[in-house]
Design a protein around this nucleic acid. Structure first.
Length: 285
DNA sequence: CAGCCGTGGGA
DNA sequence: TTCCCAAGGCT
């Protein structure tokens, strides 16, 4: 849930999930669509699908337990280098190098002297991160490495922030390469994420409809562009339950043609975020 | 590696 | 108001 999503937005959903599905077995017993629905508006709903698949794999391959081994973690759906290391280090005390966006930024500034980490995670960054890890050949070193991971992340999240870092409160400002260099501007200009008119926007609106609907939604309701002349009477005609009407209205209002809508719907089906049958389109069973 | 995949709060 | 970007992963 925390992948690319702020902690404060994740917390309430996580609480709800843990109450409803305390163990991997509980989640694994549900249809994948329930995970997607309970994902609510965290975004990137494929993560819900992967988390559900992960729960099933934990049950079927790992006896319902989360493995502590880095390679076994890495093999789980939706678990990449960062998540595997974070679970190993924070949950099990296995000192893997935890390199998230916060750590990358801290190391880019304090050691490399750049305002921002590279646009994509580079070998050089990974090498630096591993070099900086405390030696783990002793029990004390292992504890130190795990503390290092937590400390690096927190420093980046609370002090060495992306926008306006609080250098005056920073415990390492005296040795910070970026400050020493006079806090130079970024060596590149981040290319912002486009949103208006993108497939992501259309897919998101389609997923909102499916989450709001109890059962299936007619495919035509999803792929038909809104007709301004109809002035919003079409959603009710589609025969949806009232809860889904606002979301469908929002979908139809998007400036997306039939071709784009068709492509997006096909994409959702291909991704397994939705399934189609004679009734229409619904969250996966 | 580059591109893609949601969402919304804060600067 | 607009823009930035957040505990990334996968193809």
């Amino acid at each position: 849930m925390l992948q690319q999503t702020p902690v404060v937005r994740v917390l309430p959903v996580w609480e709800s999930w843990m109450e409803r599905w305390p163990t991997p077995e509980d989640l694994a017993a549900e249809p994948a669509g329930e995970a997607v629905r309970a994902w609510e508006k965290l975004g990137y709903p494929r993560r819900a699908l992967r988390l559900h698949a992960c729960a099933r794999e934990l049950v079927e391959v790992h006896g319902g337990e989360v493995p502590a081994d880095l390679e076994e973690l890495l093999a789980l759906p939706g678990v990449g280098e960062y998540t595997a290391a974070a679970v190993a280090s924070f949950a099990f005390g296995v000192p893997a190098a935890v390199v998230d966006t916060n750590v990358r930024r801290v190391e880019a500034r304090a050691w490399t002297g750049n305002a921002l980490p590279e646009p994509s995670y580079t070998r050089a960054e990974a090498r630096l991160a591993h070099e900086l890890m405390p030696d783990t050949s002793t029990p004390e070193g292992i504890a130190e490495a795990n503390a290092w991971n937590a400390a690096s992340m927190e420093l980046g999240a609370l002090i060495c922030t992306a926008r306006s870092p609080r250098c005056d409160e920073c415990p390492v400002q005296a040795s910070c390469a970026w400050i020493a260099a006079g806090r130079p501007a970024p060596h590149y200009t981040p290319k912002g994420q486009a949103w208006e008119g993108t497939d992501r926007q259309v897919r998101g609106a389609m997923m909102a409809v499916l989450r709001a609907a109890d059962g299936a939604v007619p495919a035509a309701a999803l792929r038909t562009p809104g007709d301004p002349a109809e002035a919003g009477s079409a959603p009710q005609d589609a025969g949806l339950e009232p809860d889904a009407v606002p979301t469908l209205r929002a979908l139809r209002r998007l400036a997306a043609g039939a071709e784009q809508r068709e492509r997006c719907l096909a994409g959702l089906l291909a991704d397994g975020l939705a399934v189609a049958d004679g009734e229409g389109v619904a969250l996966p069973a």
